[in-house]
Computed example of a mutant assay.
Amino acid sequence: MGTRLDGKVVLISGSTRGIGRSLAEHFASEGAKVAVTGRTAERGEKVVARIREAGGEAEFFPLDVTSEDSVRGVVSSTVEHFGGLTTLVNNAAPTDAVATTIKPIHEYSNEEWQRILTGTVTGNVFWASKYAWPHLVSAVGASILNISSGQSVAGFKGFGAYGAAKAAVNSLTRSLAVEGSDDGIRANCILVGRVVASKGDSGHHTGGGRLTRIGNPMDIAYAATWLVSDEAAFATGSMVTVDGGFSINGDAASDAESSAAAGS
């Protein structure tokens, strides 16, 4: 067990699979107490079991980021269970809604647009930060980490709502950093490129706008560990790009594979 996150109590939205799961497991391996959350209890309990088997401390709390009551309740339950909250990681994304609404902006219904914005910005960042705030104020070494996407800084056909929502996440990160400064709360953001959970698809091949390879969840977990640790005490309002070079490669904008798959 590592010690980089000793004393941290971390609430991670959407942490039953993918990037969120890797964040939860790695944070716990570095000494953090972790609130694993998501819509699927069976998956969440498996993540908790793996953490405990490895000697870490975690608890699962059901979370629906589209419900304000659910978000408020999970924050309260986390504080009640662990005795406080030092770190909020807003990782959840409405992946199902995004995957089933790949079409031009003018074809979106109001409901489709709102579903993506609620799941990405309103519930995942606004409500979570709002209800976590008083607990973060009273914590030492507090921070908020938002997981964003390369789609927030580049345009792609069919992903207008998601790109707009993630751009809002970037902007909120900066606002939270400024507003949190007096209370010792840092806020940072990771812009994710194409990340896949399959180890078989993360070799050292380039393409799709990447300069290195397709990413895997641990690439994000390593960067996130530093940002929420006290080692990053001087970092706030940061937009940290962890995307294999995707966002700086001019070929990316015209690459169909990337436009269909980039993002967290």
Rank of each mutant, 00 (worst) to 15 (best):
residue 138 S to L: 07
residue 138 S to P: 05
residue 138 S to H: 07
residue 138 S to E: 15
residue 139 A to R: 09
residue 139 A to V: 10
residue 139 A to S: 15
residue 139 A to G: 11
residue 140 V to E: 14
residue 140 V to H: 11
residue 140 V to I: 09
residue 140 V to N: 14
residue 141 G to E: 02
residue 141 G to V: 00
residue 141 G to L: 06
residue 142 A to M: 05
residue 142 A to P: 04
residue 143 S to T: 14
residue 144 I to H: 01
residue 144 I to S: 05
residue 144 I to W: 05
residue 144 I to G: 01
residue 144 I to F: 07
residue 144 I to K: 02
residue 144 I to M: 08
residue 146 N to T: 09
residue 146 N to K: 03
residue 147 I to F: 10
residue 147 I to K: 01
residue 147 I to E: 08
residue 147 I to H: 06
residue 148 S to P: 10
residue 148 S to Y: 05
residue 148 S to A: 14
residue 148 S to Q: 07
residue 148 S to G: 12
residue 149 S to W: 01
residue 149 S to H: 02
residue 150 G to Q: 06
residue 150 G to V: 15
residue 150 G to I: 06
residue 151 Q to R: 13
residue 151 Q to T: 12
residue 151 Q to P: 00
residue 152 S to D: 12
residue 152 S to T: 12
residue 152 S to L: 12
residue 152 S to A: 15
residue 152 S to Y: 13
residue 153 V to S: 12
residue 154 A to N: 08
residue 154 A to K: 07
residue 154 A to E: 03
residue 154 A to D: 05
residue 155 G to M: 13
residue 155 G to H: 11
residue 155 G to E: 14
residue 155 G to L: 12
residue 155 G to S: 15
residue 155 G to P: 06
residue 157 K to P: 07
residue 157 K to W: 11
residue 157 K to T: 00
residue 158 G to N: 14
residue 158 G to E: 12
residue 159 F to P: 02
residue 161 A to C: 13
residue 161 A to T: 08
residue 161 A to N: 08
residue 162 Y to E: 00
residue 163 G to A: 15
residue 163 G to L: 12
residue 163 G to S: 15
residue 163 G to R: 02
residue 163 G to N: 07
residue 164 A to D: 03
residue 164 A to T: 14
residue 165 A to Y: 00
residue 165 A to F: 08
residue 165 A to C: 09
residue 165 A to M: 07
residue 166 K to D: 08
residue 166 K to F: 13
residue 167 A to Q: 03
residue 167 A to W: 01
residue 168 A to Y: 03
residue 168 A to L: 12
residue 169 V to P: 00
residue 169 V to N: 01
residue 170 N to I: 01
residue 170 N to M: 04
residue 171 S to P: 03
residue 172 L to T: 04
residue 172 L to W: 06
residue 172 L to Y: 09
residue 173 T to P: 13
residue 173 T to L: 11
residue 174 R to V: 13
residue 174 R to Y: 08
residue 175 S to Y: 05
residue 175 S to F: 06
residue 176 L to C: 10
residue 176 L to N: 11
residue 176 L to D: 11
residue 177 A to I: 04
residue 177 A to T: 01
residue 178 V to W: 11
residue 178 V to G: 03
residue 179 E to C: 07
residue 179 E to F: 05
residue 179 E to L: 10
residue 179 E to D: 14
residue 179 E to Y: 09
residue 180 G to I: 01
residue 181 S to F: 07
residue 182 D to I: 10
residue 182 D to C: 06
residue 183 D to I: 01
residue 183 D to E: 14
residue 183 D to N: 13
residue 184 G to I: 04
residue 184 G to L: 02
residue 184 G to Q: 00
residue 184 G to K: 04
residue 184 G to F: 00
residue 185 I to N: 00
residue 185 I to V: 09
residue 185 I to A: 02
residue 186 R to I: 12
residue 186 R to Y: 11
residue 187 A to V: 01
residue 187 A to W: 01
residue 187 A to Q: 02
residue 188 N to C: 10
residue 188 N to H: 07
residue 189 C to G: 08
residue 189 C to L: 06
residue 189 C to F: 02
residue 190 I to R: 07
residue 190 I to E: 13
residue 190 I to G: 09
residue 191 L to A: 04
residue 191 L to I: 11
residue 192 V to P: 10
residue 192 V to L: 05
residue 192 V to K: 04
residue 193 G to S: 11
residue 193 G to C: 11
residue 193 G to H: 03
residue 193 G to I: 08
residue 194 R to T: 15
residue 194 R to C: 12
residue 194 R to S: 13
residue 195 V to M: 14
residue 195 V to S: 03
residue 196 V to D: 03
residue 196 V to L: 09
